[in-house]
Amino acid sequence: MGLGLQMFVNALLLGGLYALMGIGFSLQWGISGIINLSYGAMVLLGSYLSLIIFNMFHIDPFISMFVTGAILFLLGAFIYRFTLQPLLKGGIVFTLIVTFAIRLIIENIILLVWSADYRTIRVSYAGSNFQFLGAFVPLTKFLTFIIAGVIIYLTYQFMMNTKIGKGIQAVALDKEGAMAVGVDDQKMYLINFALGTALGGVTGTLWATIYSFSPHVMDVIIGRVFIIAILGGLGNIWGAAAGGLLLAFVETSGAIFIGSHWQEAIGLVIMVLVLLLRPHGLIGKKFFG
């Protein structure tokens, strides 16, 4: 019982972070139509930006995430407008390879500024924890889980209840129809892409409060978000959230029952199976379902 509950709590706490991380990527892929291979680099950029802010101004990552989110939003908008939008007609080979090129550039910048060493952000309360029904809950993990949940909820509300959010939904569901009623499709794609980048950056900041990070983490992140997005169905907020939680549970239990060596393969095999059997994800086809 004790072990089972602890496993559940660990998976849930990890799942919140995965969910947030997956949504940004899933929105970019499902709605803007871009498989963003630089997503991992963008998440890490969020981590490193909050590291700078923490070291220079001693600002807590839970506060600086607003700043990193805003910076990553602008970066995302810039990248979409000047490197991706002009290439959309060229097909997937071009957008894939350009996002990969952006990843190389960001990776190079990170290596130059921070080197390949592992970094951490240690806030003063990093060691605090509490007991919940006998399970051990670290405070920072708990906070990231709550914040991730709030941000996911706000993103959903943004998509459902604001004019821009509705515009993004409209171009996602029926591009021609949306254009016919006067929605500026490229503007919607741009905002959506930038929003995805911002969510990635915020994830990076939250990640940095728990785990240490280095440029190697980039590949880990990109591997995870692929699986999460496919599990949940592309562009589907609740789907990606569910996909994130599911992956966390699969990984946590897989590590215990099958062995942590196989952790990565389990996720990938599930992803390929979902692709082949249910290409619209486990939840279904609808956006924001």
Partner: peptide, 13 residues
């Protein structure tokens, strides 16, 4: 790495 990235973008464009 950055050189390769930038060169790729230039070529694609």
């Amino acid at each position: 790495l950055a050189a390769l990235g930038i060169a790729t973008i230039i070529i694609v464009f």
